[in-house]
Nucleic acid binder design. Structure first.
Lengths: 342, 342
DNA sequence: TTAGGTTCCGAAAACGTTACCGGTAACGCT
DNA sequence: AGCGTTACCGGTAACGTTTTCGGAACCTAA
């Protein structure tokens, strides 16, 4: 009914020009104090809200960051909170879109946000994504873009991610130190960078301990609990079954642990388990599952900071990488001494 | 560097007017097929992306829904996914802002989105919120607003929520049926509607079974795991301690279970536990925790549908309520027979 | 008095798009 | 020949804001 008040309404009522009102609102120096007060007062009274669309159209920037994530699981929602935190601080609004791990949705989201809705992007690529044309379109337009968490070599952009290789290495070395020899790995889809890096770490650790990797113990499966469950069942059905499993995510770790329990085996005696992410859940199940932690919140903050930096100095930020270090939390699922204490 | 192409560029290059280009892009009927093709082709070539800001400014609508949630925990992120789902389908983009359970952040977020960035709101109020002026400002401007999950009587708007009273009743009655008599409740802050409703259900169940509620067993504490832990410790330290606890969320349930374990008590024999939300985690801990489930995803979808309905028929939708029914999942923490089987 | 500086304000263009109103040309019909 | 339709297309205002330029009014100082 009652149209929202505009700068024009205020101008008319006060018998001054819109430019003056505009200046007064922004507290510009060249406007009389009395007029300023009058404008402010009337704005308050009319419940005036500036129209950001007009502003953005005018100055060709929206002060909005488009964040595209594959999901809002524990880790990513932590990261988003981090992004939110510093973005708000810096005067940006964030627009979160989840692609649901779907390539198609990712494209749609990108296209939408690209319609002048955002000043730039902070993205984490979906596990389904194999082609990166939609992201390259962003770069062709010289629009800032940060890739975080799920990074990829196919995109040259400032990135924030974990040292996943190190994480994979730590997890595997820990198992080796505990004396496990046949260590299986449950990895994600082959095109998923974080999965591959973690697997590289796994390989490195095996190499260091002079153990020949066994392809039969290296499983690629979908990035979720159910697939991990089935994959683990198969692993456990092998004639020479593994004595330890490293899963690339906690969800998968949970799936694996369920399969282990179902088979009637116990951790860590019959088989050990280490997973990744260190979500709260892994400390609550019995036995507690060892897991590699990533500083999600901090990484989110770093991504946003990097974004803002890029906004200010777009010149060759493209190589910048912020790499965070993982931390291994050892629990009963992988340490015999700990388990015996119980 | 290379400015994004506009409708004007296309017009100039094709020697036609902007209006024609505009019509061609929208596939309007009154434009020659050849020109249409030419426009489309050139648009493709120039990598033209329409400018939604201009469009929105012109037609005074943004096709964006502002979603304000207190956090992105399991339940709410499920709901957001539901909202996303139907919103995208209906041609809307959603803008998710988390208030982090902070009143101040909620206000800031509302103000930002109110600056003509969204066509309307779907909100779930923060647990800290006691005043609702910022939300009423939305309504004063005749902007559609749906309240979901965390609803409140202070706001008259179309709502989507769980039958929380029923949920509280189910949980409590289940405990009573199992023979528990001194049932404590761990509730949230006193101003939190869902908490109060669940507590009402609790009261109703006690009444039905002719048990006099004991104020000493009704604890209000912060909506998280740690506070629940401490509150439970106090409960267990009572001379006449409760023989069952109903917690109003799974996080709190986890906190309670940890306190119970620490004290050396076992569930369900020494004490029973039922919580709320039925997050995956409650089925994974030992003993499994009984919990009341809400159809989060469906509720999110319903909220978005209701929003779209409201957009189309704003007239007196204000009374509409979509109430979903909870479902109790019984696990070892509260059913003696189940526990004995293990 | 006049020159020069301040202080305050207004007019108008611009951002990219759509919507409204109109116009022209070609065609067919009487 | 004259008229009405039809099929296309163009000009322009408008959306709400900022920005640039300029100018009026006043003050100060020589």
């Amino acid at each position: 009914m009652n149209k929202p008040a505009t700068i024009k309404d205020i101008a008319k009522q006060l018998n001054i020009s819109v430019s003056t009102v505009s200046r007064a609102m922004r507290n510009a120096p060249d406007v009389n104090n009395d007029t300023k007060k009058a404008v402010m007062a009337l704005a308050e009274e009319l419940n005036y809200q500036p129209n950001r669309l007009a502003l953005s159209l005018r100055q060709k920037q929206t002060h909005t960051i488009g964040v595209i994530v594959p999901n809002l699981d524990y880790v990513l929602s932590m990261m988003v909170r981090g992004i939110d935190e510093v973005a708000l601080e810096a005067g940006y609004t964030v627009m979160v879109c989840q692609s649901n791990e779907s390539f198609g949705r990712e494209i749609v989201n990108t296209r939408r946000l690209l319609e002048s809705l955002v000043d730039g992007f902070i993205i984490s690529v979906s596990s389904e994504t194999k082609s990166f044309e939609h992201f390259k379109k962003i770069q062709e337009r010289d629009i800032p873009m940060i890739v975080f968490d799920r990074t990829t070599p196919h995109l040259t952009a400032p990135t924030v991610h974990l040292d996943n290789e190190e994480g994979g290495f730590m997890a595997t070395e820990h198992l080796l130190e505990q004396g496990y020899k046949r260590i299986a790995i449950l990895a994600g889809p082959k095109n998923l960078g974080i999965s591959n890096s973690r697997m590289d770490g796994y390989m490195n650790a095996l190499k260091k301990y002079k153990i020949k990797p066994d392809p039969a113990l290296m499983i690629h499966c979908d990035f979720n609990q159910d697939y991990a469950f089935f994959a683990t069942e198969e692993l456990l059905a092998m004639k020479k079954r593994p004595d330890a499993i490293f899963t690339i995510s906690d969800r998968m770790g949970i799936g694996a642990s369920l399969a282990i329990k179902k088979k009637g085996l116990t951790m860590p005696d019959d088989i050990a388990l280490v997973s990744f992410n260190n979500e709260p859940i892994v400390s609550l199940v019995t036995p507690g599952i060892s897991s590699v932690e990533m500083p999600s919140f901090e990484m989110g903050k770093a991504a946003a900071k990097l974004f803002i930096e890029t906004m200010h100095h777009p010149e060759d930020m493209s190589g910048v990488e912020r790499i965070f270090k993982p931390k291994l939390f050892i629990r009963e699922s992988s340490q015999k001494s700990l388990a015996k204490k119980l």
